[in-house]
């Protein structure tokens, strides 16, 4: 597997470290249901057979966290974004909605 880091270009798999599902984000600790939400966040990550969004870290490169869209059946990677960009957009959207 090779991942195209937005900063460093296409690099071999062994430069990267895997974290997992990027679809669930850290819940609001002030939420009345925080205990349950944190449980889901930490333990019930999506485990689907098909295209998934997941967090990878460019350990042997620029130390960027990446949101990689990858098919777990074929290992084919269709998209790579900087996690910081995805997260910034998410926060703006949330703020806008609120």
């Amino acid at each position: 597997m090779r991942i195209r880091c937005p900063h460093c270009g296409e690099r071999a798999l062994d430069e990267f470290t895997y974290l997992g599902d990027a679809s669930i984000t850290r819940p609001d600790p002030a939420s009345p249901d925080a205990a349950s939400e944190f449980y889901t966040y930490a333990y019930e990550r999506r485990n689907i057979a098909g295209p998934t969004q997941e967090l990878w870290y460019h350990q042997a490169g620029c130390h960027s966290w990446l949101v990689v869209t990858r098919d777990t059946r074929t290992h084919e990677i269709s998209d790579v974004k900087l996690a910081e960009d995805v997260a910034s957009k998410r926060i703006k959207t949330t703020a806008g909605a609120a």
């Binding site: 870290y57 960027s64 910081e84």
Partner: peptide, 15 residues
Amino acid sequence: VVQHLELCKQWHWPD
């Protein structure tokens, strides 16, 4: 720990 701090900064609290 560096990896963890980077995750916190880049993914949890980019603001």
